[in-house]
Write a protein that binds this DNA or RNA. Structure first.
Lengths: 239, 239
DNA sequence: CGCTATTTTGAGATGGCTCAAGCTATGTGG
DNA sequence: CCACATAGCTTGAGCCATCTCAAAATAGCG
């Protein structure tokens, strides 16, 4: 394991803002970080595959990680895009099960990791850490409930609008024209994220493009008029 | 608050098997239970409404509680049926937010409850409790992920088959002919659970009934041939 | 500069929704 | 104890959002 050595103040400061490590006191934070390993991965690299035995809990510090699942019959479903500060593997590590998802870097990425036992020890030593973990899990639950609501009751166009808005907020980068979703994002990804097909995604994006709501290209979507998308996402008859 | 007084050994034994309280040592269990209140509610009664401020964490001991959400545009979605041993309110209490669901008893029910502060104190005192809570949340996440997969990739018939099988397993009661899902379960409930309409549910159930897979009546479904349902649920071309 | 992955487009099929009625247990008040 | 009211369920017909499949158009990349 490539250890951290002496973490920079800058890194510590950023870690102190992550969902997992926030509000730990200074020594606790240092101690927890000292137990972690670091790793860099190239774009496209897999951190682990669905079904792998769960060695470690991961905290993303750079890049973007895509979590997806395969159904029994081989269809892909994109569960989550994890940006820096986000956490991976909690379900597997604390549910004592193999990883339920496959994790793949969609950008060059960097992360800290703790192995199961190490983290469990830390968890008992620092109640705040347990607390953070609980809140993190709760946050996942709320997100998933929302997604279930959307899938159950909304049609594709609205689900797609919501997905884009969420991504734009999570990874958006201001440009001259609007907000660029700053990662390679294929039609395939969007389809797996919203429970539809690439054909439908393509048609809807095209439609929005002619309305000037977005601009899209290969693996790229730029939101030009978030308000317009929002009014599709929330109904109430925008346009 | 109506306190428990001296809990019966029988009750304690049952509590010791619940997801929330299992594997606590005897004194811890007693202490935790001593801090709880008890309450009984009639069939149809609401424990709380979506949006209410979250006072308490609830552990169901008798009956059956239905958790549902309303979307912004007023559509109902049934999130979960909680049977004895199950826990309610964790998301709200540990996410520091109002209840994200409405909880209604579908059978005469009974439950223990702890208020937020009390439980938080207990949580710090008994690491095992925190552990259980984490596992409980993880279990929710896994369940919800599965539901998202189903909604994203499977058609209604399969989703319905899966829902019935799960319910039969959770609350099934052996009868002469098969397994009766032992609670009032309307077409409406099934529709909200699987993201479809009562019309489609009705047609599918009817179809299955002519095949002898199930027997259904007003608010009632009895699974006669689970294997048949399972082969629909898993495809692989049963029949 | 040809290859391959991605995206678009078209045409057709269809699962599931909508809406409108009719049906049937169940319970209720007279 | 009956007749009516009601909540829950079924049924039919039409429609349409979305999927499927096939094929063409693009755009990076080696």
């Amino acid at each position: 394991m490539s250890s951290l050595g002496q973490p920079s103040a800058e890194l510590l400061a950023r870690l102190a803002q992550s969902a997992l490590l926030h509000d730990l006191d200074e020594p606790a934070l240092r101690q927890v970080v000292a137990c972690a390993g670091v790793r860099k991965v190239a774009k496209e690299a897999y951190l682990f595959m669905q079904g792998d035995e769960a060695h470690s809990l991961i905290l993303v510090t750079q890049g973007m990680i895509k979590l997806s699942q395969v159904t029994e019959d081989g269809q892909q479903v994109l569960m989550e895009m994890i940006s820096p500060g986000g956490c991976i593997g909690a379900v597997a590590v604390f549910g004592n099960m193999p990883y339920p998802v496959t994790a793949q870097a969609v950008l060059p990425s960097e992360y800290l990791y703790w192995d199961r036992e190490t983290f469990n020890t830390l968890l008992e030593r620092y109640p705040r850490l347990a607390r953070n973990l609980i809140e993190l899990l709760v946050h996942y639950i709320v997100t998933f409930q929302e997604r279930i609501r959307n899938l159950s009751t909304q049609r594709v166009e609205r689900r797609l609008a919501r997905a884009l808005l969420r991504l734009a907020q999570q990874t958006g980068k201001k440009t001259a024209q609007g907000v660029l979703i700053d990662l390679p994002l294929s039609r395939q990804d969007l389809a797996e994220l919203t429970g539809t097909t690439i054909y439908t995604v393509s048609r809807i994006l095209k439609h929005w493009e002619t309305q000037g709501l977005i601009r899209s290209a290969r693996q790229k979507v730029e939101v030009l008029f978030p308000h317009g998308l929002a009014s599709i996402a929330e109904d109430l008859g925008g346009e």
